[in-house]
Design a binder for these strands. Structure first.
Lengths: 117, 117
DNA sequence: TTATATTATCGTAATATTGCAATATTACTT
DNA sequence: AAGTAATATTGCAATATTACGATAATATAA
């Protein structure tokens, strides 16, 4: 009781039954990328040679709880690996999952038909 | 409770926080794709040989005002062209804008560093 | 013009997202 | 065990999104 589900809900009050799995999968991934803070977090991680540890709050400029929440959303689609190294929790990209996502987006874009108008 | 000292803003300690344009552009595009109805709409259009005209309500299964709203969101990033043909407003993908988006997403995915963990 | 069909907008309710202060938890160090 | 630093969770306010009924606007045809 009193528990609030603070995770990002994909569809609000929409009719979930009419969409197929590929629609939902792409939409969930896109939702993670739909906030500039999360894009910035992923891009920052991607530029480091190693895992990033606890400098995201200073880099992004949001509060620690907010960064923590955004990291949680990113983790939900599995693209982040995190391990404690000393007293810092260090994140980096999960290569396999990332490439999976890349394929999903790329196929979506490639399949669009341009022979029109 | 280990708070970090960031409540005092020193002069010259400029906050690098502001999202850059590439973060915002990607996030805006991702937001459009972050609802399965919009993914389904785009995918349906992509499968047609010509523009699609006024059958989206039946195909997607949402009300006409809701479909209209979703189309508006998609149009905001410029990937839809619409023209009246007879009494129907017919939509199709704007090829140039679509390929632009494809590049933005692809570059984002490609630039991720995997040499870690 | 009037009727009909299609699309857009308005109003509004339900739900989701975002952000942060306060607090709790976790991991390490001494 | 106590202290310190990093991260997670809770609670809540402000805002945004989603959906749809009612209604307005638009385009064509009769």
């Amino acid at each position: 009781m009193g528990f609030r589900n603070r995770s990002i809900q994909l569809m609000g009050a929409s009719k979930t039954h009419i969409y197929n799995q590929s629609h939902i999968t792409l939409a969930m991934a896109a939702k993670v990328l739909s906030h500039p803070a999360r894009v910035a977090i992923l891009q920052y991680i991607s530029k480091q040679d190693n895992c990033i540890c606890n400098d995201l709050v200073d880099i992004i400029g949001l509060s620690q709880p907010t960064i923590s929440q955004h990291l949680n959303e990113i983790k939900k689609i599995g693209v982040l690996k995190g391990d404690y190294q000393g007293k810092n929790l260090c994140y980096c990209i999960d290569k396999g999952k990332w490439e999976e996502l890349q394929v999903i987006f790329n196929e979506f874009f490639v399949k669009i038909n341009h022979n029109c108008c």
